[in-house]
Design a binder for these strands. Structure first.
Length: 838
DNA sequence: GACTGAACTATACC
DNA sequence: ACGGGTATAGTTCAGTC
């Protein structure tokens, strides 16, 4: 009997003699790598029809207990059957808990349960790891005390203890959760490769950088010098290790990973590039890429989140491969300032550090001295990746603990998976049998059914306003679900006393007052979020912040989950009802504010902007209090802020107020300007237009009139006309969202991408394409914009006409329109034709 | 060949 | 297939005269 403390990190399972075993790899508090092996009962549920007699049930159990299967050469049978009182979709039921020998047989057994007494079968489509975690409660990243038998020097269970490259292996006899959490410092290895071709496996891997705690290395087989292979610029770089050829480079990489034996092997976009590239090249040279603790090669699956976008997920056994980009996409991108998720921008935003400047080109074109920069560039990418992992680790860890899924799965999952995992791991509290995952056809019909009506947006009256107040509902969708008890399971067909009833685009729906498990569960998340927030306030550190953020994101995602066609607990009716309430509460509140004599300017989904006029701030706060006293449940309207001025403009077409486009100047000494929707915040407009617009907005808001802004604009126009603008100011960046060949309409950025391709510059879907618009060649007409596209490096004169009339003036036209100035007339000196001219 | 509405495309807001 | 409805707006495409 051996005993150790243990923190679970990576979960996997294997079969031995027809039985399932869970293999959890983690560490103990001495930092030793420990593997524990465990088993767990497997079962599925048969929900019984209402009103069966005891006799009927007993005879059914007898029949089920006799089920024996020979599936794929494996003898298996139903082990035992228990009858239980459970809930299914919020309704009490009698259900049979049917135990099987092997988890993989649950499906086959379910197929044999075609008895009339059974209403439906559930619980056989949950991953074994998820099932194990729920069943045995060995949650990722919590500390446990393990007791069991050592498998270190035995052939038992296929000799797993000897096959794995670990410190000790234990077959669990018992374990308990430790009350006090211990510190866990994970071992991390970041990596990055450089290649000559971007297409997986097409070019040589020139170098690989590795960064860990006190460890920095670039392995390469290239020096840039053929004869003697000594490059005088790089020979003294101590982090560079030179090997003979690409095959040895791969071998050396594997050796380092195995020697360092990290918990996490971390890359950036490494699911989509680095790991598959390494695998492809290793295959070519027949080098075994034995990164796994059991000597296995990385495995790739398309099953993970976002597989549809050409993503595969790369898994290395025992060592957790993390593609940081995937986690950032899910958990962070919506809160970020960065315009792209490139390593450069993300590192800049979170670390205040950037990639080294190095213009990537084919290695054959590099000069001798450039190799030093290339090596440093490669190393620095791993340094950034390493630091980013450290930065995001508390978030990943908190999410993993909260949704109770291993870090590997968590890091690839989308928000719907977060919510669903949380639900599945908390069903026991509500004695619920899990709902099934929708099948392919079911998803198809859910999607083809058309979409539900969304939120309400109030058309603004264009103008410059003083003393603007902004109210918004706190976590609106979430508090509606909780306050109105909305979910697929709480909806009732027959009218019931006190039920919440709402008219939607799909008809009228009612929800019982009896709390449903989804609203209850969400309320619980909501409370935990409040608690975490308070914890953070009293003890502000990276961990309490991460916990608070995790609960925030989780609670905000539940509505999206209910309306997501792939969800187990999908309900279109519930989603439509939530959105109908969103519209109703916003519209009712707008009316209420108007009824009290205020002029409402604008509203979008959960917000309302109105004029304070002569009223004091404390009077506005009184109004808020009153409005809140009439809101049901936990619904809450909150003061987003007081603003000195605000501007709303018309749409380009002219007559109506533009929604989702406004700017506000804060009422405090900081004079911060909040800009929404304007070209200033759109990355597909050139920097010049964005900056000019931003400056115009700032001037107008600060001064309350257009005078300085007009002077400023005139200066800029003069500069543009006299060609004083730098190329970087006029470059337009547009994302290539699909392969070039799939475009039906050949727009400017597609032309630019084609040009890049012709120049052998790698372009692929997801790249930001840069270009500018040049003036027409001598004698030629302007024609289509795309015919004048030039790459930033291409020499040429920018098209003054285009940049004035298609970039700068459109960006500011509507702003000056608020002051009834026709900017085109002023700039171009043209007289507008009006009725008066006739 | 100029004009025009529809289609396609990208991106933001919440 | 992996959050989704509400919006703005530019450019090209296809049909018309």
């Amino acid at each position: 009997m051996v005993k150790t403390d243990f923190i679970p990190l990576d979960y996997d399972y294997f079969d031995f003699k027809g039985e399932n075993y869970i293999r959890v790899i983690g560490r103990n508090s001495e930092g030793k790598r420990v593997c524990v092996v465990d088993t767990c009962p497997v079962y599925l549920w048969a929900v019984l029809k209402n009103g069966l007699s005891v006799k009927q049930i007993n005879s059914l159990i007898e029949k089920i207990e006799k089920i024996k299967l020979d599936s794929k050469g494996r003898q298996t049978r139903v082990e035992k059957v228990e009858i239980k009182d459970k809930n299914f979709l919020g309704r009490p039921v009698k259900a049979l808990k049917i135990f099987a020998t092997n988890y993989k047989d649950l499906h086959e057994i379910a197929n044999h349960l075609d008895f009339d007494e059974i209403e439906c079968r559930r619980g056989y489509d949950i991953g074994f790891v998820t099932h194990y975690i729920s069943e045995k409660k060995m949650n990722p990243l919590l500390w446990y005390e393990i007791k069991g038998e050592s498998l270190d020097n035995t052939e038992e269970l296929g000799g797993i203890g000897m096959a794995l490259d670990i410190d000790s292996c234990i077959r669990i006899e018992s374990f308990k959760k430790l009350e006090k959490e211990k510190e866990f410092k994970s071992k991390v290895l970041a990596y990055d490769i450089e290649t000559d071709e971007i297409k997986i496996g097409d070019g040589e891997i020139l170098m690989i950088s590795l960064v860990s705690d006190n460890f920095k290395k670039v392995i390469t087989w290239k020096t840039g010098v053929e004869k003697g292979r000594v490059n005088k610029h790089t020979k003294d770089l101590d982090f560079v290790e030179l090997v003979e050829d690409e095959a040895e480079l791969l071998e050396r990489f594997v050796q380092y990973v195995r020697k360092i034996s990290p918990d996490f092997l971390v890359g950036y976009f490494s699911d989509g590039f680095d790991l598959p590239y390494l695998k492809a090249r290793a295959q070519k040279f027949k080098v075994p890429l034995a990164l796994g603790l059991d000597d296995t090669q990385p495995r790739f699956s398309r099953g993970g989140a976002r597989a549809g976008k050409g993503f595969v997920t790369g898994k290395t056994s025992g060592i957790i491969h993390i593609d940081l980009l995937r986690f950032i996409q899910t958990a962070y991108s919506q809160y970020m300032q960065s315009e792209t998720l490139s390593l450069n921008e993300v590192a800049n935003e979170f670390l205040g550090d950037e990639k080294k400047t190095f213009k990537i080109q084919h290695s054959t074109g590099l000069e001798e001295h450039q190799w030093k920069d290339y090596f440093e560039y490669n190393l620095h990418d791993s340094v950034l990746t390493y630091k980013l992992f450290e930065k995001f680790w508390p978030d990943m860890a908190e999410f993993s603990k909260i949704i109770q899924e291993p870090v590997f799965e968590l890091s690839r999952a989308g928000l719907s998976k977060y919510v669903e995992s949380y639900i599945l791991h908390h069903l026991e509290k509500y004695n619920e049998i899990p709902e099934k995952r929708p099948m392919h056809e079911e998803i198809g019909s859910r999607r083809s059914g058309g979409k539900v009506e969304g939120a309400f947006v109030l058309e603004p009256r264009p103008g410059l306003y003083e003393n603007v107040v902004l109210f918004d509902f706190t976590s609106m969708h979430t508090s509606i679900i909780i306050s109105m008890n909305i979910s697929g399971q709480t909806r009732i067909d027959k009218q019931e006393k006190d039920a919440n009833t709402i008219e939607t685009s799909m008809g009228k729906f009612s929800f019982t007052k009896k709390p449903g498990f989804i609203p209850l569960l969400l309320e619980d998340i909501f409370k935990q979020r409040k608690k975490a927030k308070a914890e953070y306030k009293s003890n502000p550190d990276r961990i309490t912040l991460a916990r608070s953020n995790a609960f925030k994101l989780l609670s905000a995602s539940v509505h999206g989950y209910i309306g997501f066609f792939g969800a187990r607990y999908y309900s279109k009716e519930a989603s439509a009802s939530i959105l109908a309430y969103v519209r109703k509460f916003n519209q009712d509140t707008i009316k209420e504010i108007e009824n009290r004599g205020f002029q409402v300017i604008y509203g979008d989904t959960d917000s309302i902007a109105f004029l304070r006029d002569k009223k004091t701030k404390s009077e506005i706060k009184e109004l808020l209090k009153e409005l809140n006293s009439n809101l049901p449940g936990i619904m809450e309207l909150e003061l987003e802020g007081f603003f000195k001025r605000g501007i709303w403009v018309t749409t380009r077409a002219g007559n109506i107020g533009a929604k989702k486009k406004y700017a506000l100047l804060s009422d405090d000494s900081e004079k911060r300007v909040k800009i929404r929707g304007f070209e200033t915040v759109r990355r597909d407009w050139c920097t010049l237009a964005r900056q000019v617009q931003s400056n115009v907005i700032n001037l107008v808001l600060e001064e309350g009139n257009e005078k300085s802004a007009l002077e400023y604009l005139k200066e800029i126009v003069k500069k543009v006309k006299s060609r004083k603008i730098n190329t970087d100011q006029i470059v337009i960046r547009t994302m290539l969202k699909k392969p070039i060949s799939e475009y039906k309409s050949i727009s400017p950025h597609v032309v630019a991408a084609k040009k890049m391709k012709a120049l052998n510059v790698p372009v692929s879907s997801g790249n930001l394409i840069e270009y500018y618009i040049a003036q027409p060649e001598n004698g030629k007409k302007r024609g289509l914009v795309r015919d004048r596209v030039k790459l930033p490096e291409e020499k040429g004169l920018y098209d003054i006409e285009y940049y004035l009339n298609k970039q700068i003036l459109p960006a500011v036209e509507n702003i000056f329109q608020v002051f009834e100035l026709d900017i085109k007339e002023i700039i171009e000196g043209k007289k507008q034709t009006t009725l008066g001219d006739f």
